[in-house]
Design a protein around this nucleic acid. Sequence first.
DNA 1: AACCAGGACGTGA
DNA 2: TCACGTCATGGT
Length: 242
Amino acid sequence: MFYLLVQKKGEAVKLIFSKLYNEYGPQGWWPLINYSGLNTAKTGAIKEYHPLNYDLPKTRDEIYEIILGTILTQNTSWTSAKKALLNLNSLNAINPEKLLSLKDKTIKEAIRCAGFLNQKTKYIKAVTHFYISLEDIIPTRNELLNINGIGNETADSILLYAYKQPEFVVDTYTKRIFLYNGIINENDNYNRIKYLFESNLDPEFYIYNEYHALIVEHAKRYYSTKPYGEKDPLLQNINIGF
DNA sequence: AACCAGGACGTGA
DNA sequence: TCACGTCATGGT
């Protein structure tokens, strides 16, 4: 009885991935300003997304840029977070040592546009000290969670997108889509939802990468204004038979 | 004018 | 564990 339900939820997880991928294609996450390789971006130019290129990030500063981005975009639109990153970039501060050489006030003004400037400045400095101490080692999830400012989603985002580790990222959009479609419950916590995905997908980082990015793309279209999901043309009635 | 944005922390049950 | 208030700014 329960087993059948679990199995159907697992099938839905797989089915929704293929539907989203067929609809939107590869998403090219995590966005990077001026990433290494390929063409020429001048200062301020943004190539940002890089579909089907799973080699990024390559450099130490590109990894660092993603870590900065995961904190800057907490409860904030990517548009705002990106502006903050561009401000930091114009200070040459998308580099851990350079960032720590800045005064708090300078950092705060640079990231003001992304909101929560006081706590995000603390968070960024904390993770930067940790990042320098790592010296090219891949951090563990618990190490990340012990840093002030890094919770479940940010830890998984860093592991998945900065370090290519197969850790599924669960965000508010994920909860919204899968709750609306009857695949999770209101009271399912972060790790339970994470397990639903990880136990039904091949543990490949590029699959988790695309799935989370596709969820965000789809949710921005149909799950941002209430009533959430009502106009979703793709997943409507996907839960029939549960 | 209220609501939302690619959340996390501190507190008190 | 878990619900709740708080953190800040920008766009719709």
